[in-house]
Amino acid sequence: MLPTVVERPRRTVADLRCERGRSQLQTMCNKVAVVHVPDGFLDAPTSVATGVLAAGTVALALRKARAELDERTAPLAGLTAAFVFAAQMINFPVAAGTSGHLIGAVLLAVLVGPWTAVLCMTVVLMVQALLFADGGVLAIGTNVTLMGVVAVGLGYGVFRLLRAALPRTRSGVLTATFVAAFLSVPAAAMTFVGLFVVGGSDVPLGPVVAAMGGIHLLIGLGEAAITVAVLGAVLAVRPDLVHGAAHLRSATALASRRPEPAGAAR
């Protein structure tokens, strides 16, 4: 007897789109689906404007990062960028049928410093756009603005504020990191919505705000968990290499050995 009900495998919209052979977002046809902002979501003037903002920030970061990098921390910066690239490949399930991935902005900023984080994030996003077709090429400026400028800037700002308010302990640093990493994700998402208002397509904005805000609050929890796990591991073995924990080592370094050169933590 033939089965009357054919069980169909559950398919996502993206799967169907791939099968129809009219993939708009190339990455959705593959197992790895990082998905940054593609070309076309925002119009050309908005893309150019974010490109100018991103280029200006990167130019400033090239000068400012000098103070954050020395012979010990420069190799860590390259490694952390590579790790962020790898971690971004791992889309984790969020709500039913949705996924999110690490941005890594706060991880970079706390570990190697905010200006170095801007540079590292820019390298990651450019490699993804140019080699892996993840995120549009015209949209590189937009993606750098969202993840390299807003997520790093707001995330590190929140981290600094909380670090000052919390106890000068490892737990204090990790708590500040958790909140900062969490907030960096909806901040980037809402910045995208802001750009979408200016240069996006003509769809009702209410649902865009609700969808982007809601799902990225959930993704932010994943971001915060991964960031704290990685930073906690580095703090456990080499707290002296963590840019955002300089205030911890100054206390212990004074007791055990000669203090760090003044201003090294800035």
Binding site: A14, V35, N91, G97, S201
Partner: peptide, 20 residues
């Protein structure tokens, strides 16, 4: 890795600008 659409792609599908 999850192959489900990520937050941005999902939002675009939900609100109808994914085809842009």
């Amino acid at each position: 890795a999850s192959a489900h659409p990520d937050g941005l792609e999902w939002s675009a599908e939900q609100t109808g600008f994914d085809d842009t």
